[in-house]
Amino acid sequence: MRIGSAVDGRSLSLDPAYSSLLGAEFNAVTTENAMKWRNLEPLPGVYAWPGADQLIEFAERHGQAVYGHTLVWHSDVPTWVSPDWPAERLRTELRDHVTEVVSRYRGRVWAWDVVNEVLDEDGSLRETLFLRKLGRRYIADAFRWAHAADPGARLFINDYGIEGRTRKADALLKLVKELRREGVPVDGVGFQSHIAWDQPPRDLTGNLRRFADVGVSVAITELDVRVELPTTPEKLERQAAVYRQVLRSCLTVPACVSFTVWGFTDARSWIPGYHRGYGAACLFDGNLAPKPAHQALIDELGRHAGTDRASPTTN
Rank of each mutant, 00 (worst) to 15 (best):
R2G: 07
S5T: 14
S5Q: 13
D8K: 12
D8S: 09
D8A: 10
R10D: 15
S11L: 14
S11V: 05
S13G: 11
Y18M: 06
S20C: 00
L21Q: 07
A24R: 06
N27K: 08
N27M: 10
N27G: 09
A28H: 10
V29H: 07
N33G: 12
N33K: 07
K36Y: 06
K36L: 05
R38I: 10
N39Y: 11
L40E: 06
L43F: 12
L43V: 08
P44S: 04
A48N: 09
W49P: 11
G51E: 05
G51I: 00
A52K: 14
F58Y: 09
F58K: 09
F58V: 05
E60H: 13
E60W: 03
H62L: 06
G63D: 08
A65E: 14
V66L: 05
G68Y: 10
L71F: 12
W73S: 13
S75G: 12
S75F: 13
S75M: 13
D76V: 11
P78Y: 11
S82N: 12
P83A: 07
D84G: 14
E88R: 13
R89S: 12
R89N: 08
L90T: 08
R91K: 14
R91G: 14
R95P: 01
V98A: 09
T99Q: 15
E100C: 11
V101A: 13
G107I: 11
W110T: 05
A111T: 13
W112C: 12
V114L: 08
N116W: 03
N116R: 03
E117N: 12
D120L: 12
G123T: 07
G123Y: 09
T128N: 00
L129S: 02
L129Q: 03
F130G: 04
L131Y: 05
A140Y: 00
A142V: 09
F143Q: 04
G152F: 00
A153F: 01
F156W: 06
N158M: 04
Y160A: 02
I162G: 01
G164Q: 09
D170T: 08
L175F: 01
V176Y: 09
L179C: 08
R180V: 06
V184Y: 13
V184N: 10
G188E: 11
V189T: 05
S193M: 14
H194T: 03
I195G: 02
A196R: 13
W197E: 05
D203R: 07
D203K: 01
T205E: 15
N207L: 07
V216K: 07
V216R: 05
A219R: 02
T221G: 00
L223W: 10
E228I: 00
L229Y: 00
P230V: 07
K235Q: 01
L236H: 01
R238D: 01
A240I: 00
Y243T: 04
S249M: 04
C250S: 03
V253R: 07
P254F: 09
C256H: 04
S258P: 06
F259C: 05
T260G: 03
W262D: 02
F264A: 01
D266V: 08
R268C: 00
I271S: 03
H275S: 12
G277Q: 09
C282L: 12
L283P: 01
L283Q: 06
G286P: 01
N287A: 12
L288Y: 15
L288H: 08
L288Q: 02
K291M: 08
A293Q: 02
I298R: 14
I298A: 14
L301F: 15
G302K: 13
G302M: 11
G306W: 09
D308H: 15
T314V: 15
T314H: 15
